[in-house]
Amino acid sequence: MLTKEQILTWLEEVKDPEIPVLSLIDLGVITDVTVSENDEKVTVEMTPTFSGCPAMDYMKRNVEEVLAKNGVQNFEVRMSFDKPWDSNKISEKGKIALKNFGLAPPPEYNLILDLDILEHVNCPYCNSDNTDLKTPFGPTLCRSMHYCNNCRQMFEQFKPL
């Protein structure tokens, strides 16, 4: 009998294509996995980070491939806003992985997005808060660009949302 735990272990190998150190589970986009009692049908529920993120289709296909590779015959991967993603859903492990990758992790916040949480983002290279927001739009939809006045270099942040 397939179990949810088993499937989650397999899915751990699926990474965000734009941030190859971050698994989809740590990113928080896998919102549910169910195995139906009678026919062992596996349903994986996913939700997009940013709605226009072109990598989401790719991630969905990767999930399907991993299920197929592990011999699951009857499965469905669904993408919806039913349990919408926000950046607080990135796991602690995921935040550490982001920082080691050189991307400032999004701060835990009260889901009311204002300018204050974008200024003075902690620099992933030197940990200084003496930083400025340069632009809320970076090389991918989920990143903003900042400048560290302490170590004098540009860095990117995984934006809070």
């Binding site: 940013f50 709605s51 226009g52 806003f81 632009t135 809320p136 739009f137 970076g138 660009m145």
Partner: peptide
């Protein structure tokens, strides 16, 4: 370059929103 990126990003978002 920053504005080029900003308008391209906002375009992607808006198309995502229209799809929703």
């Amino acid at each position: 370059l920053e504005e080029d990126i900003a308008f391209s990003s906002m375009a992607q978002d808006k198309l995502g929103h229209s799809l929703a």
